[in-house]
């Protein structure tokens, strides 16, 4: 009975989320008390479903790009030839993290204009660090005798990387991607300040018109997405860890 409960809760959350973004009208009575002066209860300047999908797309593109760059960088600096770039790449990625996303948006808008592009740049820079740090940890903490055995068996550098090192560090790298995705899901909302189509639009509209119902529905959708995606990626991570013989802690 107890084992069913978390699964049931998640399922309920998925159903609720899908119902809300596809037919928000059903939930009007619930949110009604939060509005004043007969203001609209459900966001009426665009479909919630479209905004949710666009929000997810923005996060997906930024995360995929950040993953490719961060993992490539981590691979590069853990090869003997690239070892001297390790401190440099670490500080570069750290700078990406210390820049507030709002500042990145402010700087990127004059360069690339309004819309999705500055948001993507901010999310990309922001997502690099967790993935890079985790990839670095994964690639540098491999069991020494396994790596030794791979060399001793006559694998080339590339074969060791693709057949042993990356598969074995996959669970840890996935952990970095999970962190990065969750940060990006939340951070993407501010993209709407520079006219990116994300769920931030709903929150900002609510703030501007003093409409608590708008703020709440935008925030709740983002929160539900974050919880579900975090959960899903955790499960993938645990599966990968078991598969790679590294028991998940």
């Amino acid at each position: 009975m107890k084992a069913w409960l978390p699964l049931l809760l998640r399922l309920a959350l998925v159903v609720l989320l899908v119902a809300f973004v596809t037919s928000p009208g059903w939930f009007e009575p619930l949110l009604k008390p939060l509005t004043e002066n007969n203001a609209p209860v459900i966001y009426n300047q665009g479909s919630l479903l479209t905004l949710t999908l666009l929000h997810l797309r923005t996060v997906l593109i930024a995360t995929v790009a950040a993953t490719i760059v961060a993992v490539a960088l981590a691979i590069l600096v853990t090869r003997p030839a690239g070892a001297e770039f390790l401190p440099l790449s670490r500080s570069l990625v750290n700078i990406g993290q210390t820049f507030p996303p709002v500042a990145v948006l402010a700087l990127a808008v004059p360069a690339v204009g309004f819309g999705e592009k500055p948001t993507l740049i901010a999310l990309f820079l922001y997502g690099l660090l967790p993935i890079f740090e985790n990839a670095l940890t994964g690639l540098t903490t491999l069991p020494a005798n396994v790596v030794e055995a791979a060399r001793g068996a006559g694998m080339t550098g590339w074969q060791r990387l693709t057949k042993v090192e990356l598969p074995l560090s996959a669970p840890i790298i996935l952990g970095g991607i999970r962190l990065s995705v969750v940060i990006s899901l939340a951070t993407a909302t501010i993209g709407s300040t520079v006219a990116a189509k994300t769920l931030g639009e709903v929150i900002i509209a609510g703030l501007l018109s003093n409409n608590l119902a708008f703020i709440l529905q935008g925030g709740l959708i983002v929160a539900a997405l974050a919880v579900l995606i975090y959960d899903g990626l955790s499960a993938v991570e645990r599966y990968a860890a078991r598969r790679m013989g590294r028991e998940a802690e």
């Binding site: 005798n145 030794e148 055995a149 060399r151 001793g152 068996a153 006559g154 042993v164 598969p167 590294r246």
Partner: peptide, 17 residues
Amino acid sequence: LRRSIGYAIQGHGLFPH
């Protein structure tokens, strides 16, 4: 060269995956 020479180490070093 290493493919033509067997190599066994302490703690076996088997690939866990």
